[in-house]
Design a binder for these strands. Structure first.
Length: 218
DNA sequence: CGACCGATCGTCT
DNA sequence: GACGATCGGTCGA
């Protein structure tokens, strides 16, 4: 069981540009590896000088044109999916069920539409600002458990699709947090039954025992 | 607990 | 016109 991570970090870390993940992290060709490596990293948003940050505890990989669960399956290119065809290191945000804004990290090179969905995260900075956005009074794991809730707490919406993660509004940092291999769990992805046999692939990664992982408790 | 259901709207056929 | 890479609530056992 992974010990619960710090519930607060120093703001100076958020300002340390050396800690920010760079293009070489995002533009690797193995989206499964990127999805796994994003566990434990800190996703930061800075809108109107308000900083909020969460430690990523659950991700899902979407493996491009051969993946029936991906919006880019069969090389589907539309206005919505076009950002996935750009270079790795940008945000792909889309509206799900008319209500939820789901945040993805685009990976790999131009014309290879890989992406990683951030499904669960643990608040580490700006908790009051996140509570305000979610219209909640007290911190509990519903604040940033599930992809819709993560985006809501961070203030990320579809208008941020295409935003570079190398910039200063949305970015991801490495604070040196390390994760033992035995504490990384894989499983099939959530909510992709329509993807036939690809729904069975173990493309979901999460930190064992972390209370901000979505899905049923057990 | 688990099953079910309504909300809500952009996107694609 | 149908349908979600969801969520939170309700209902019954």
């Amino acid at each position: 069981m992974e010990r619960s991570v710090d519930n607060k970090i120093d703001k100076r870390l958020l300002l340390r540009t050396a800690a920010k993940l760079d293009a070489s992290f995002y533009q690797r060709d193995n989206v499964l590896q990127v999805a796994k490596d994003l566990l434990g990293k800190i996703l930061v948003s800075r809108f109107d000088k308000v900083y909020t940050a969460v430690r990523i505890v659950e991700t899902e990989a979407y493996n491009g044109i051969i993946d029936k669960a991906s919006h880019a399956y069969n090389n589907r290119r539309t206005a919505r999916t076009e950002v996935m065809y750009g270079n790795g290191g940008t945000a792909y945000v889309y509206l799900c069920y008319g209500i939820h804004h789901l945040f993805n990290v685009v990976t790999n090179a131009n014309d290879i539409p890989h992406a990683v969905l951030i499904r669960g995260a643990e608040p580490v900075y700006g908790i009051q600002a996140m509570l305000n956005r979610a219209h909640k009074l007290h911190l509990d794991n519903t604040l940033t458990k599930g992809p819709g809730n993560v985006s809501k707490a961070l203030g990320i919406t579809t208008k941020h699709t295409g935003t570079s993660l190398l910039g200063s509004e949305i970015f991801i940092i490495n604070d040196g947090y390390t994760l033992a291999k035995k504490n990384i769990v894989t499983s099939p992805r959530i909510g992709v039954d329509y993807a036939a046999e690809d729904a069975l692939l173990h493309y979901r990664f999460y930190i064992k025992g972390n209370p901000y992982v979505s899905g049923k408790l057990k």
